[in-house]
């Protein structure tokens, strides 16, 4: 495992921890899209079905369990916690699941490398992860006074994607048989989706102003 991959995983983990701390600490999930969180949970479930059949390393198994556990916890808090659920911006979080899930499913069925349940679901998870942030970005545009933690959450998530691309470039040159067009294409698309957000994030940081995305 190279340094980019490890740093990417840590950013990913940190983003989730930041979000969990925000939600449980201030008892508020204002500005957070439940749709994005549920889509990520679906991504993890469909991707990590191989958790007991395909052992890679203790690190991988532990991280998979942590991602499944923490994203389940986030969805649980937002949906069922007596206090936290009252702070969810349900009326603003209007993105349609089907708009992201259906194309991902069709593409997975059309392009899966092998037609086994695990492989098709894994391919589905790659497509879905690429677009799962969209409800969150739309919600951010609609939210006035985005708090720092929400901005940092999306920033950390975007950093994770950027670092994974560096990891792939590194592996491309150091591993002979490392050729994964599907994963790379989706990863690049996913990172491009963040570009606009990054631009305004850095702008607000540079000017020492609160983050606000133009509608």
């Amino acid at each position: 495992m190279n340094v980019f991959r490890l740093a990417g995983d840590m950013m990913h983990l940190l983003s989730i921890v930041v979000l969990l701390l925000k939600i449980t600490g201030i008892k508020s999930c204002r500005g957070i899209s439940l749709k994005t969180q549920e889509l990520y949970l679906l991504v993890f479930i469909t991707r990590y079905l191989d958790i007991f059949t395909n052992f890679v390393s203790l690190y991988n198994t532990v991280m998979k369990l942590v991602f499944l556990g923490t994203s389940s916890a986030i969805v649980y808090y937002m949906r069922y916690d007596r206090i936290i659920k009252l702070t969810y911006d349900k009326e603003q979080d209007t993105f349609k699941y089907l708009l992201l899930v259906a194309p991902s499913a069709v593409l997975a069925l059309a392009t899966s490398h092998v037609y086994t349940v695990l492989e098709v679901l894994w391919t589905f998870s790659i497509y879905l992860e690429a677009v799962a942030i969209m409800p969150q970005l739309v919600l951010l545009q609609r939210t006035q006074n985005i708090d720092n933690l929400t901005g940092n959450y999306v920033f950390l998530l975007g950093s994770y994607r950027g670092l994974y691309i560096l990891n792939w470039i590194y592996r491309f040159f150091t591993e002979k048989h490392y050729r994964q067009w599907l994963v790379w294409t989706c990863g690049v698309v996913q990172t491009i989706i963040y570009c606009d957000f990054f631009y305004y994030y850095f702008l607000s940081w540079q000017n020492n102003e609160k983050l606000a995305l133009p509608a």
């Binding site: 995983d9 991280m63 894994w122 994974y164 490392y178 599907l182």
Partner: peptide, 10 residues
């Protein structure tokens, strides 16, 4: 392509 290589990533 190699369908299993990326399964070592998260």
């Amino acid at each position: 392509g190699s369908e299993t290589a990326s399964k070592d990533e998260l």
